[in-house]
Computed example of a mutant assay.
Amino acid sequence: MNSLDEQVIIITGGETGIGRATVLQLAGLGARVVIGGLLEDEGSRTLEAVAAIGGKAEFHKADVRDVHQVDALIDGAVAKYGRIDGLVSNAAIFDGFASCIDTTDALWDQIMNVNARGTFYACRAALRHMVPAGKGRIVNVSSIGGVVGMADGASYTASKHAVVGFTKHIGCFYAKNGITANAVCPGSIETDVRSNSKKILGDDAPDMGGVGANQDWLKQAVPMQRKGSPEEIAHMITFLLSDKASYITGQSFVVDGGWTAK
């Protein structure tokens, strides 16, 4: 039996991209996965994919910008299953590489509210249950934009740096309670983050073209000269949720094809 069998794991933004790949890996390992997300059609398709492999998952519409919805997602899962073993805070939106001057107040607020505030809300709600239980695994999805300054736009970079710093704090502070918290920092990954971000941002969405919209830059930026797959990030997330990572906390793991190693 693997260490994730029958574990109750909640993931925000689990209906698309890295989130969906993680849901499928976790469900394939026997975990009970509770997905919180905004995109209901994508959530339904993810559940269909989970059912096809014989896994267990459920989808709840939840906006991580709303503390009441986040609390309801996590408290509801604990009420149903009696515990929370793991949290993956993955919900995020992109800023289209907008520079500081080009970042509107509305864009800054939206990016920070989803990426940073949403991670805070989810971790706080999960910790309220994990601390009394004396155990738990938290994985926050940041970005290489959380460790370097020239991979993304101004607001996205600030939000993902916030996720890394916040993860270090909770990883250290709650280690004595049997809880680990780590961040995963993907590089350029094959996802629909641009189009999904436009759906969520609405009128606040910037132009999502420009840098990174074509493949030419890969030869210059990424030693592997390709984008990563969502599954490659999900492998790291799954590992950090497992007992194999029991002595790892407060760390950030870059998965970027060598981009930041240059």
Rank of each mutant, 00 (worst) to 15 (best):
S3A: 08
I35R: 03
M208F: 15
K227Y: 00
S155P: 10
H129T: 12
M112I: 15
V139K: 02
N177D: 15
G96F: 11
V64A: 08
I233R: 01
I200D: 09
A106G: 02
Q7I: 03
Q25A: 14
M112V: 15
I200Y: 06
N182V: 07
D243F: 06
D216P: 00
K160Q: 09
T119H: 04
K135T: 14
V147F: 04
K160Y: 07
R124A: 10
V255T: 00
F120G: 01
V131F: 00
D256I: 00
F97Q: 13
A72G: 05
G146C: 10
A213M: 09
I74R: 01
A72I: 02
A92V: 10
L26H: 03
T260N: 00
T260W: 00
S197A: 13
G136K: 07
A133C: 08
A205H: 06
A49C: 08
G165E: 13
T249I: 06
A79V: 08
C123V: 11
N177S: 15
I74D: 04
R65A: 11
L29Q: 15
I233F: 01
M112S: 06
W108Q: 06
P206G: 09
A122L: 12
V255E: 00
G210E: 03
G209S: 15
A205N: 05
F253M: 00
L201Q: 11
N140T: 13
D204E: 12
E190L: 11
K219P: 01
L87F: 02
Y247Q: 05
V33S: 03
N115T: 13
D41G: 11
A79N: 10
T157R: 10
F120A: 04
I237T: 02
Q215F: 04
L107F: 04
E6A: 13
L87S: 05
G145A: 15
L38V: 13
G82H: 09
S142K: 10
V70Q: 03
S242G: 09
P132W: 02
A122P: 09
I248N: 00
S242A: 03
G202I: 13
E231A: 14
A31D: 06
V254S: 01
P186R: 01
R194G: 11
G43R: 04
V67I: 14
A106T: 14
A154C: 14
Q225M: 13
G202H: 08
S155D: 14
G178L: 10
N196P: 07
D63T: 12
T104C: 05
G209H: 07
A31W: 02
L24M: 12
I10T: 09
H129G: 06
G54F: 11
E231P: 01
N115G: 05
K135H: 15
E48L: 15
T104F: 04
G212V: 03
R20N: 12
N115Q: 08
I84D: 04
K176P: 02
D71M: 11
